[in-house]
């Protein structure tokens, strides 16, 4: 069955393979249970502390907890696709896949499809942790949080494309980026604060990131001002631009991988 250029049988085969990986590697559950819970505890406690200081503390409480829940949409979608690909390099499975009819877009779609399960688990843990530990109910923000989450989901996938491209080009040395790149994106994205809080030198970079605009739109909802559709539109637009750049970059790195015969690193 082929639709939108994808063979769904192949997409499902890849998704199923990664479901087995998670099922049979309990330590992989850390990414979708323990770390989300640690983040909830850390930022939730920080939120409580700040809110008890008075002033605009209650606003900060909402920023911190809604921010960490939505940040995990980026985190989980990015990590699921990046580590899904890394799994193929760790198990020297790349050549096995490259000699099948599987196309690159089908592979990414398969990993992303199963990544949705991990995303639901990871974000569910954070949202539930925020509710149980800090009485923060994300659903009170209403449906308006959904388009923000969709943009953040897409951004996570796009960041993963860059990570995969770098791993194809630089090999295992670039693996650390799967986790490390998010430590760069997070502070620049204004997950918990407006861009104005960043040092002036960092603001232009921050404004170029779709996540910055998505979180700005989300904070307006937290503030009770309703959705800032302009910010969300900007987030969507920059995501499309970033996705185009990510696809071009990945195609370039894949061509380099094939031209230089880097497959021998994994066979």
């Amino acid at each position: 069955m082929t639709a939108v250029g994808l063979d769904w049988l192949r997409v499902r085969a890849i998704a199923r393979r990664h479901a087995f990986v998670l099922r049979r590697s309990p330590h992989r559950l850390f990414d979708v249970t323990i770390w989300p819970l640690v983040d909830t505890l850390l930022f939730g406690s920080l939120a409580v502390f700040v809110s008890r200081r008075g002033g605009n503390g209650s606003v900060a409480f909402g920023y911190l907890l809604s921010g960490i829940v939505l940040w995990h949409v980026v985190y989980q979608s990015q990590i699921a696709v990046s580590t899904g690909f890394l799994e193929e390099t760790w198990s020297r499975n790349l050549l096995n896949l490259m000699v099948t009819p599987l196309r690159e877009v089908e592979y990414v779609a398969g990993v992303a499809l199963f990544g949705m399960v991990k995303l639901a688990m990871g974000v569910g843990v954070v949202a539930l942790g925020a509710e149980i530990l800090f009485a923060f109910d994300l659903t009170r923000l209403g449906w308006q949080v959904l388009p923000v989450a969709v943009v953040l989901l897409a951004v996570g996938w796009v960041i993963a494309l860059f990570v995969i491209g770098l791993v194809l080009r630089f090999g295992s040395g670039a693996e650390a980026l799967a986790w490390g790149i998010l430590f760069l994106v997070m502070p620049l994205s204004g997950v918990f604060y407006p861009v104005a809080a960043l040092p002036a030198v960092a603001r232009p970079i921050a404004l170029a990131l779709p996540t910055t605009h998505a979180f700005a739109a989300e904070r307006a909802v937290v503030d009770g001002h309703g959705m800032r559709w302009g910010e969300l539109g900007l987030a969507g637009l920059t995501t499309v631009v970033m996705a185009a750049a990510g696809l071009v970059f990945l195609a370039w790195m894949l061509a380099t991988f094939r031209r230089r015969g880097y497959i021998t690193r994994y066979s």
Partner: peptide
């Protein structure tokens, strides 16, 4: 492919083909 039984491995590649 790691973490798969032989039948699961063959099923996956059968579907890829």
């Amino acid at each position: 492919t790691e973490r798969l039984r032989v039948r699961e491995f063959l099923t996956m590649y059968g579907q890829l083909y």
